[in-house]
């Protein structure tokens, strides 16, 4: 336990001072604000019917950027974009250590391999928690500012809904982060892991869903893939995945099934990374 805490402290320090982490976090927050608030609010203000919001009534657009909608806005970008960004972080955190030789250095400091991997998982979990809470705080701030500007009630969404959204966000981003860790550990290189992971998350799963009807039984597999499960869990929370909604939000799996699938992936990716590093020669 002591070794796990020590490893977590070491890993947290080096992650905290890593510019790549802040660049990724800032990218995600910017995307979240731009696609969650800026475009919708501009469409509402200008009454412009072009773009993805075609046909959406103005009042509905405004409701989507007010505090009551924060739980849905918080998670709607996570299955695809937020997940992809955190997957990059996981892949960089695990994969860079091979090129830099830092896995070798860390493993000669005393922690067992499970403790060292556990420390990385704990530190990344802390980052994910920070990202989700930070996103919630930014979304609450922006939505209340817009409410103020539009003379609508400045308020908080129901605590239960917000808590539910934060929990879903943690699981979705956590799953993608551990997926990145596994890829980084398999590839022993950040570049290959990030490339493969992005192609999978942004392209391959969508293509597979498109062709799932061609082969009997294929749909069962494609319905339970990581991105589909993440999208379904977010969809089950009420985020909009239809026209005008965020890409990656789906209604394929029921919420509980999606939750179970995500939890299974999270555990499986973490365990696989652990097994891989535990047995591996660090040459």
């Amino acid at each position: 336990m002591t070794a796990l805490i020590r490893s977590t402290r070491g890993e947290l320090l080096r992650l905290y001072r890593w510019p790549a982490l802040w660049v990724l976090a800032a990218t995600w927050l910017t995307l979240n604000v731009v696609f969650g608030y800026v475009f919708d609010y501009i469409a509402y203000r200008t009454g412009d019917s072009a773009g993805p919001n075609t046909g959406v009534p103005g009042e509905e657009l405004l409701a989507g950027v007010l505090p009551d909608a924060v739980p849905a806005v918080l998670v709607q970008g996570m299955p695809m974009f937020g997940g992809a960004i955190l997957m990059i972080l996981g892949a960089l955190a695990a994969g860079s250590g091979y090129g830099w030789g830092t896995w070798k250095t860390v493993l000669t400091q005393g922690p067992s391999r499970p403790a060292a991997v556990g420390g990385t998982v704990m530190a990344l979990a802390t980052v994910v928690l920070g990202v989700v809470l930070g996103t919630a705080a930014v979304d609450l701030g922006v939505s209340n500012a817009l409410a103020l500007a539009e003379s609508r009630p400045v308020d908080l969404p129901p605590a239960g809904e917000l808590l539910e959204a934060v929990s879903v966000g943690l699981l979705v981003l956590g799953m993608w982060t551990t997926a990145g860790m596994l890829l980084g550990s398999l590839a022993r290189s950040p570049a290959l892991a990030v490339g493969l992971g992005l192609v999978w998350a942004l392209v391959v799963e969508n293509l597979l869903r498109g062709v799932s009807g061609l082969l009997g039984g294929l749909a069962v597999v494609t319905d339970h893939l990581p991105g589909t499960a993440a999208g379904s869990l977010v969809g089950a929370l009420g985020a909009s995945g239809q026209s005008g909604g965020a890409p990656g939000v789906l209604t394929i799996l029921p919420g509980t099934t999606a939750l179970a699938a995500l939890a299974t992936y999270f555990v499986a990716f973490t365990a696989a990374t652990l097994l891989l590093i535990r047995r591996r020669d660090l040459a």
Binding site: G10, L13, P19, W100, W103, K104, T105
Partner: peptide, 27 residues
């Protein structure tokens, strides 16, 4: 204490911070 096949450190951290990271690992 070991140095094997070249030093392996985080390139973006200062020398001092690199050692502080390792100090945390060692308690």
């Amino acid at each position: 204490g070991a140095l094997v096949e070249g030093p392996g450190f985080y390139p973006y951290l200062s020398g001092r911070d690199n050692l502080r990271v390792l100090s945390r690992y060692r308690g």
